[in-house]
Simulated scan of single mutants.
Amino acid sequence: MRFITGCAVLAIFFSASASANPLIDQLIGVTSTYLEQEVTQYASTLGGEPRHEVQISRLDARLRLPLCAEDALSAQLESPEIPVGRVTVRVTCNGPSPWRLFVPAQVSLYQQVVVSTRPLQRKSVISAQDIRLAERDTGLLGNNYLLDPAQAIGMQMKRNVNADTVLGHAQLEQNRLVQRGDKVVISAGNSSVNVRMPGEALEDGTLGAQIRVRNTRSNRVVRARVTGPGQVEVGM
């Protein structure tokens, strides 16, 4: 089987009607049909039937290989694992003169993702008024986007962002209710007794996190669970 490497393709988008090479037309047809089927099936698993677009990259017009019978022609996604974004399709001819080509394409999948409604500052905590849903091409976003506003509310900004910025895990982190050096109230108790002591946080902590704190009365260091801003709890 003849194996055609990447030198046979050029990553320049084009109109399919511009091709005068029957082989190019055949490759465009089989790749487009395959990707349409794959992205439609993938989109159906996401709910809401998000719209999509498929653009095949230009192939080298100098490419000369025998046409392949339709029943001997097959296509398979080479990379990535899902048919969204920049993809490569392996087209194989298993006819009397076999060959294999890799065809690049761009698959756009438009979904409602979380974006900022206004500029947000580093360390600010996200509220419902700070975000909204807007349609974006997730094929251009990698994995850095959120589909549910609840995933962002209560999170803390890692860096400054402008209005209308897509928010994802790269921009967000758990809200630190306690930071190293903060004065905290240490609570210890059970159903019959509750003791409160002053302390100092020795580590940053998010809600529910276990951090080291120093009891400023006894100077003893203990591990305590963060229960709220400036509040930690130890077991008895």
Results as ranks from 00 to 15, higher is better:
Q111N: 00
L109H: 00
A152R: 12
K123N: 11
V195N: 12
D182G: 11
V185S: 13
M155N: 11
S192W: 04
V89C: 02
L46H: 03
S127E: 10
P66I: 12
R136F: 05
I211Q: 14
Q76F: 02
K123Q: 14
A152Y: 15
A201P: 06
V178C: 10
S32F: 08
R225I: 15
N162A: 15
V54N: 01
K123E: 14
G142T: 07
S124R: 15
N143V: 10
T227G: 00
S44C: 02
L27W: 12
K158G: 08
R220F: 04
P83D: 02
E36Y: 10
D182W: 09
Q156D: 14
W99M: 09
G208R: 12
T88N: 00
S15G: 11
G142P: 02
A20M: 00
S97L: 14
I126D: 12
E200R: 15
Q121K: 10
R132S: 13
R176H: 13
M1L: 09
T31M: 03
S79T: 07
N219M: 14
G208H: 13
P104G: 03
G6T: 10
P198H: 04
Q231K: 05
L120H: 08
Q111P: 02
A201G: 07
Q156P: 07
T33S: 13
Q231V: 06
P22R: 09
V87N: 04
I211C: 12
L109R: 03
A16E: 13
P66G: 02
L27C: 09
T31Q: 01
E78A: 07
T227Q: 09
A134H: 05
V91Q: 07
E135G: 04
L73E: 02
E173C: 15
S108K: 07
Q174D: 15
D148M: 03
S74C: 01
S108M: 02
A105T: 11
L207I: 11
R176G: 08
W99Y: 07
P104M: 06
G189K: 03
S17T: 14
S15T: 12
K183Y: 12
G48I: 03
S116M: 06
L133M: 05
V87Y: 00
R51I: 05
V91C: 03
Y110F: 14
L167Q: 11
L172K: 14
A128V: 12
L59S: 03
P229I: 02
T206K: 07
R132F: 06
N215R: 09
E53M: 05
T31A: 13
S74L: 01
V213W: 09
N194K: 11
S74P: 02
R118I: 12
L63N: 04
R214M: 11
L23P: 09
A188R: 15
V115H: 03
Y42C: 03
C68E: 06
R90Q: 01
W99A: 08
L46T: 01
G142S: 05
